[in-house]
Simulated assay, not measured.
Amino acid sequence: MWFGAAATTLLLTLLVAWAVLGYYRRELASAQDALQRYEDAIPVVQAFHASDAVICGGRICTNADPAGQQAGDRQQYRQARPRP
């Protein structure tokens, strides 16, 4: 009788520990995904901050540099001037 109660208690303890571990593993994976998204956004934010650009009407407006570097398959994009 005592052996059965001890085995049942151990089994329930292991089951709860397994469930808690699974929960924390999912939470950790979610936090790592969010951190990766933030780290991927850092270069974009740094480039926006370094450029003479503002948000206007839900879009980005820049003060384009005529002598700036060009990009795109048809060279249609031009580098913005640096912030003063």
Rank of each mutant, 00 (worst) to 15 (best):
M1F: 07
W2D: 09
G4F: 04
G4V: 10
A5G: 06
A5H: 11
A6N: 05
A7C: 03
T8D: 09
T8E: 12
T9A: 06
L10H: 02
L11N: 08
V16F: 01
W18T: 12
W18K: 14
A19E: 12
A19P: 00
L21N: 13
G22A: 02
Y23L: 15
Y24W: 12
R26N: 01
L28A: 13
A29D: 11
L35G: 06
L35V: 09
L35Q: 05
A41C: 10
I42L: 08
I42Q: 05
V45W: 05
Q46E: 15
Q46A: 14
H49W: 04
H49I: 14
S51A: 13
S51W: 00
S51V: 01
D52K: 13
D52S: 09
A53K: 03
V54D: 09
I55A: 07
I55T: 10
I55H: 03
C56G: 07
G57A: 08
G57E: 15
G57L: 02
G57S: 12
G58S: 03
I60N: 09
C61N: 07
T62V: 12
T62L: 02
N63I: 05
D65P: 06
P66C: 00
A67W: 00
Q69V: 15
G72C: 02
D73A: 10
D73S: 15
Q76L: 08
Q76V: 10
Q76A: 09
R78C: 06
A80P: 12
R83E: 07
P84H: 10
P84A: 12
